[in-house]
Write a protein that binds this DNA or RNA. Structure first.
Lengths: 251, 251
DNA sequence: GTATTTGTTCCAAATGCTAGAACTGTTTTG
DNA sequence: CAAAACAGTTCTAGCATTTGGAACAAATAC
């Protein structure tokens, strides 16, 4: 949902989807008033939309607090689609192996509407903290390993206005970013060095299908302590190997 | 989506969601005319709804055939919700082990709006055929192992009209079904013997949380050939064990 | 080459959505 | 403990929005 309203689109459906996204994204329950405020809608209107989502089975209402939360029907929407995605089908074992080998959270992402979007994740069992990337999340193009990888390999254009500073390490000038993209194209993988969160490094490598078309990328989020101990090369080698093994599958 | 329209609900949102479900469920692409016909809407109206879904990023349009298909944004809806479900989080390894041990497809289901709904699936690698149950699918209450299990343990009421015959083995009288439910309560698991598809047996066992509340069930779909070879007890023991190990987790 | 599809655009009519105010119950506050 | 503030829900009436038939162009079938 980028623009609040487009030329000729269905207002009701659009707002209903925004509402559903909001409830689906956050954990826990949501009050009507808060939802209405967030979306800039009158309370009664939000309430009506909620009732429709309720009837359709996408949200449920807590019996006592009267607040709204996601309901299981939501799974019916994305489930079949997700299960048919070749990248996800074959990516499961690859991510599992990668998480096992690196002892970190691993991810699969695709390029969607010009930016990276997480389509699968697998976290190393035993390691809690660094599991911030939910499936469906869109990442910053200039401050994520996935984003920089796609910018580099698809040679996408980007404007200076987009380069928002997120940490002291974020690349905020086109000059810096362009140099980085050249390096990424040369080495075949990308590294995000605390550019998005000061606690994390991340790595990403491209996945190609049988006809050599870029179809996605494999990624890895690594706490800084682990990077200083094992070195960047260790992790970049792991993601590159994982991406290569996924590229060998029939995608 | 049970009833076509409810008393006081948003028509546009409701139809838009039905449209999105339709596209998300089926594989491949969909033509505007077919979608309109299926939903009983005028073509121009369906087209407008599609444009809204397009703008929102939930569907994409093929450049040449002009047909519509699901797009990645769909994952953003269910992704975060699915990843936070304790049953799914802890169920992954359990289903994997179960699929490995049984060499069959295994499933996780919950009770939703009075019927069983698949929330996770894992198919045994190497075995293609019996992977019919998509995540999000709702099953027959009287002709599925999950359905009968929930009917038995939650003591739900069911009417004779619902007992549609699907195969020669389907239980189509309340008398038969009641006897079956008594047996299920006694043995603690349920078996579906070709009652839904003539090629499949299926097994289901209940999952309880720490406070002994029924929160879901573990299931297994087994081709008849394998049942005759290994016996029912083999598979019922496997699902029961898997369900017990999942019940031991913090759900 | 014709005829029947397809997806898309247009527009007028009225449906049904919108949003403010009123209502009821619960929680917070003085 | 009163009373005020705020929760979710219901009501209503005006008018913006959706609606759906018909017209359009392009692609496909015959």
């Amino acid at each position: 949902m980028t623009s609040p309203r487009t030329s000729t689109a269905n207002h009701t459906l659009f707002n209903g989807l925004r509402l559903l996204e909001l409830i689906a994204a956050g954990p826990g329950e949501f009050a009507v008033s808060d939802l209405a405020k967030t979306l800039g809608l009158p309370k009664s209107h939000a309430h009506r939309l909620l009732r429709t989502l309720l009837d359709a089975g996408y949200v449920a209402q807590s019996g006592d607090t009267r607040k709204y939360r996601s309901d299981f029907r939501l799974l019916a929407l994305a489930g079949p689609f997700a299960e048919r995605l070749p990248l996800r089908v074959h990516g499961g074992p690859v991510l599992r192996d990668l998480s096992e080998a690196s002892q970190c959270s691993s991810y699969l992402a695709v390029l969607h509407q010009g930016g990276p979007l997480v389509v699968m994740s697998d976290r190393y069992r035993g390691l809690r903290p660094a599991h911030a990337l939910d499936v469906g999340l869109r990442l910053e193009r200039h401050a994520s390993a996935f984003g920089k990888l796609f910018l580099a390999l698809k040679r996408l254009s980007i404007e200076a206005a987009e380069l928002k500073r997120l940490t002291p390490y974020t690349l905020t000038t086109l000059r810096e970013l362009r140099a980085e993209l050249v390096a990424i194209r040369r080495q075949g993988y990308s590294v995000n060095r605390r550019e998005n969160s000061v606690e994390l490094y991340s790595f990403a490598a491209p996945v190609y299908n049988a006809t050599a078309v870029l179809v996605g990328a494999v990624g890895l989020a690594v706490p800084i302590a682990m990077v200083t101990r094992r070195g960047e090369d260790h992790f970049s080698a792991l993601v590159t190997k994982a991406a290569a093994s996924l590229s060998a599958q029939p995608l």
